[in-house]
Amino acid sequence: MSAEPEAGLWIRRFRPSADARVRLLCLPYAGGAAPFYLPFARSLAPDVDVLSVQYPGRQDRQQEACVDSVAGLADALVGEVVPWADRPLALFGHSMGASVAFELALRLERLGHRPLVVFVSGRTAPSRPRVSTVHLRDDAGLVAEILSLGGTDPRVFEDEDLRRMVLPALRGDYRAAETYRSTPGARLAAPLLALVGADDPHAPLDTVRAWEDHTEGGFDLRTYPGGHFYLADRMEFVAREVLGHISAIRNREHVVGSNVKIIHAA
């Protein structure tokens, strides 16, 4: 194969798989960081080359200003991602990351780089936006909301210095997620697979099913036990399902069109 792109500030590659035939680009949730997807990289290598996005304003990008809009993140990412589309590229985004994945996929398709499949996890469809203003709350209110979701260790907020470090990125991400509105009628050519926790209060099943309206390439929906952060408890299991779905598409076994399959995972 030809020389590979170099990972920079935006793209992290925890288990490089130079011979993989497919790449999977993973986008974190609001307040999340690239290492969240390390279990994906461990589980999918060497079959899939897993790339994980590091947004500005956190960890080693702490000194950079946050990008507080989904469109802004997608605009900044597309030029970074195109070099990695030298082989079939799938996208996976959880929560806010699902919106970024959708907008990024739209931009990639305009440039002639249709994703193999886009996985959207724990997120309502763009046509069914959830009205919320958590980003306007004071620090205590923002922390309370984050802890209620169950995906963050409470000890992060017990240390005042650490709390001061993480809150700007959290607030910026929440602003991006809550103010996001897609272009009416926006649809992908790529297939979509939506994943959601059965008890996710932020992504009711009917609003997740509406992702079907945003693709012309086929749609599936899978539910899992758990809430908004079902994924954190089932990373390896979901990774295997992701691999199976990618393999099915590559083997031309994926059901296309408007046929929706709802699969309830054990």
Rank of each mutant, 00 (worst) to 15 (best):
A34L: 12
R209D: 05
L9W: 11
L116S: 13
H264A: 15
E145M: 05
L221C: 13
S17H: 03
V117E: 05
L243C: 12
A232L: 13
T133F: 03
D139E: 10
P16W: 06
R171V: 08
V256G: 15
D233L: 11
E4V: 03
M235C: 12
D233S: 14
G172R: 04
G79R: 06
A98S: 01
L44Y: 09
A34C: 12
F219I: 00
D159T: 09
R171S: 04
A232R: 11
R110V: 03
G226Y: 10
V22D: 08
A169Q: 07
Y180H: 14
V131T: 09
A266K: 08
T183Y: 02
G172T: 04
S148E: 11
M1W: 10
R175S: 11
V134W: 08
Q54S: 10
G151E: 06
P115A: 15
L193A: 08
E160P: 12
A186I: 15
F229Q: 05
R164H: 06
R164W: 00
D49R: 08
L195P: 08
E216D: 03
V256D: 11
L25I: 04
V196P: 00
D200A: 02
G112D: 02
Y180F: 14
D49G: 12
F92V: 00
Y29I: 01
H94P: 04
A265M: 13
R252L: 12
E236V: 14
A18M: 00
P168F: 00
H228Y: 09
D233H: 12
Y55C: 13
I146A: 14
H94Q: 03
A194V: 02
S52G: 09
H202M: 05
A34Y: 15
T133D: 09
P28K: 11
H94D: 02
V120P: 02
D68S: 14
A194L: 01
P28M: 15
H264G: 09
G8Y: 07
L167S: 03
L106H: 10
E64Y: 07
E236Q: 13
L27Q: 12
P154L: 14
A177W: 08
D138G: 13
D233A: 15
E160K: 06
L73M: 15
N251I: 02
V117L: 08
H214Q: 02
R23N: 03
L9V: 13
F92R: 00
D86M: 00
H94L: 06
G197M: 01
R240W: 05
